[in-house]
């Protein structure tokens, strides 16, 4: 695919979008895992929410 004399600009633009969106997704997934792990650690220690039993909502 020939993108003409300004191919570099196009590729850098698309790479930037992929990098930023990928970074966002990676951060969100890692953050979600961290929270779930923290929640699980607390529940293993016997700390539960008042409305326990619906930990499945997590």
């Amino acid at each position: 695919m020939d993108l003409g004399p300004h191919a570099a600009f196009i590729w850098i633009s698309y790479t930037a979008v992929v990098a930023v969106v990928g970074g966002l997704i990676a951060w969100l997934v890692a953050d979600g895992r961290r929270q779930l792990a923290a929640l699980k650690a607390l529940e293993d220690r016997g700390v539960r929410r008042r409305s326990s039993g619906d930990a499945g909502g997590v």
């Binding site: 929270q35 779930l36 929640l39 539960r48 997590v58």
Partner: peptide, 9 residues
């Protein structure tokens, strides 16, 4: 989730 963890702590 973060708020839940905080409340539990």
């Amino acid at each position: 989730l973060r708020r839940r963890v905080k409340a539990l702590r």
